[in-house]
């Protein structure tokens, strides 16, 4: 038996998986580095966000739910930083270099 919240969670996780699929297709198909980064960050940010949202009803405890949100926040921070650094490198506008 699955409750309404869990059902919504599964839908959100499935939507997140869709974003991962689209991001991966973009990563493979797009012609240049910045477009590929653009596709990849959608998978990282929105895709993982939806997957985390979908897992929240299954977390079991408040601590576990907060840890899931922390994981998403850390991936946002790291992914955003790396994407900016790669883009700056490609465009030759690296700070401090």
């Amino acid at each position: 038996m699955i409750g309404a919240l869990q059902g919504l969670g599964l839908l959100a996780a499935a939507a997140g998986a869709g974003f991962f699929l689209a991001g991966t297709v973009g990563l493979i198909r797009f012609p240049d580095t910045t477009s590929r980064l653009h596709a990849l960050t959608k998978a990282d940010n929105l895709g993982l966000g939806l997957v985390v949202l979908g897992l929240l009803p299954f977390a079991g405890s408040l601590g576990a739910a907060l840890k899931l949100l922390l994981v998403w926040g850390l991936v946002l921070l790291a992914g955003g930083t790396v994407a900016q650094m790669i883009a700056a490198r490609v465009r030759g506008t690296e700070p401090g270099a």
Binding site: A78, T81, Q84, P95, G96
Partner: peptide
């Protein structure tokens, strides 16, 4: 490595280190 005063790496190093 040169000290990063601005830019994404400087932000990441200052935000992520305590966490």
């Amino acid at each position: 490595f040169p000290r990063q005063e601005a830019g994404p790496l400087a932000l990441l190093a200052r935000l992520l280190l305590p966490i």
